[in-house]
Simulated scan of single mutants.
Amino acid sequence: MAKKKFSKEWIQQHINDPYVKMAQQKGYRARAAFKLLEILDAEKLMRRGDIVVDLGSAPGSWSQVARERMLGAGGIIDGRVIALDLLPMEAVAGVEFIQGDFREDAVLEQLQQLVGNQKVDLVISDMAPNLSGVESADSARIQHVCELALDFSCRHLKPEGALIVKAFHGSGFSQIVEMFKRHFERVLERKPKASRDKSSETFLVGRRLKR
């Protein structure tokens, strides 16, 4: 019974959510688009000509934002957006998509082949593992996903490049921040306005790789 009540409440909140309404108006596939937009504007990241890798991209709202930022004259994309997710994602015009599990070497290799020798300007990750409710297990899963995104970034980012990942406050969060500080000159925590108050999600931004 409690579960039903929660579902009803959640649906009601979702329907009345101003970011859900705005996403529908602007044609974004999810309200998460506004989280990324706020971070990009605050950090002055992502511009035409950039190479962007979107990890955990489905349903595609972050890829939509990236594509929008790349549009040049005549609607031609100036730059590259490469997206990856375990789930299928409806095509976003001009976005290269790989379906597969980022934790698997074969999928990672596919992504690395697509990037090739080009260095990446920005890696964005809205990836979140399936959570079990067991805090120690969940924090290990979250840390693992962040580690993979960080490892990929260390190999493929330009020296001036940046990484944005979703993390969660709680057990293991400080270790993720420390991990970022070992590799980036500047590390920031951002909680966008579009992030729900009840959510413990916090986005970490790492800028400029340490030599």
Rank of each mutant, 00 (worst) to 15 (best):
G72W: 00
G72Q: 01
G72V: 00
A73E: 13
A73Y: 09
G75R: 00
I76N: 10
I77P: 00
I77F: 01
D78S: 10
R80C: 13
R80I: 12
R80K: 12
V81W: 05
V81G: 07
V81R: 07
I82N: 05
A83C: 12
D85Y: 05
D85K: 07
L86C: 00
L87N: 09
P88L: 04
P88V: 04
P88H: 11
E90A: 12
V92G: 05
G94T: 02
V95F: 01
E96K: 06
F97A: 02
F97D: 01
Q99D: 01
Q99C: 07
Q99H: 01
G100I: 01
G100Q: 03
G100Y: 02
D101S: 07
D101Q: 05
D101V: 13
R103I: 08
E104M: 03
E104G: 02
A106G: 00
A106Q: 06
L108A: 10
L108W: 05
L108V: 05
E109A: 15
Q110D: 14
L111R: 01
L111H: 03
Q112G: 12
Q112F: 06
L114Q: 14
L114C: 06
V115P: 14
V115S: 03
G116T: 06
G116E: 11
G116Y: 05
N117H: 11
K119E: 15
V120K: 12
L122I: 14
V123M: 03
S125I: 09
D126N: 11
D126M: 02
M127G: 01
A128Y: 10
A128I: 04
P129I: 04
P129S: 06
P129F: 01
P129Q: 04
L131P: 05
G133Y: 13
E135N: 06
A137R: 15
A137S: 10
A137L: 13
A137Q: 09
S139V: 10
S139I: 08
S139F: 08
A140V: 10
A140Y: 05
A140D: 13
I142M: 06
H144F: 14
C146Y: 10
C146V: 08
D151K: 12
D151M: 10
C154M: 14
R155C: 12
L157Y: 07
L157E: 07
K158I: 03
K158T: 06
P159W: 04
E160A: 15
G161A: 13
A162F: 08
A162W: 05
I164N: 10
K166G: 09
F168K: 05
G170Q: 07
S171H: 11
S171Q: 15
G172T: 07
S174F: 07
S174G: 04
Q175R: 13
Q175E: 15
Q175M: 11
I176L: 09
I176V: 15
I176E: 12
I176K: 04
V177Y: 01
E178R: 11
M179Y: 02
F180Q: 09
F180K: 07
F180M: 13
K181F: 09
R182P: 07
H183E: 11
F184W: 03
F184I: 06
E185P: 00
R186S: 12
V187N: 02
V187S: 04
L188C: 13
L188Q: 13
E189L: 08
E189C: 08
R190W: 10
K191F: 00
K191H: 02
K191D: 05
K191T: 08
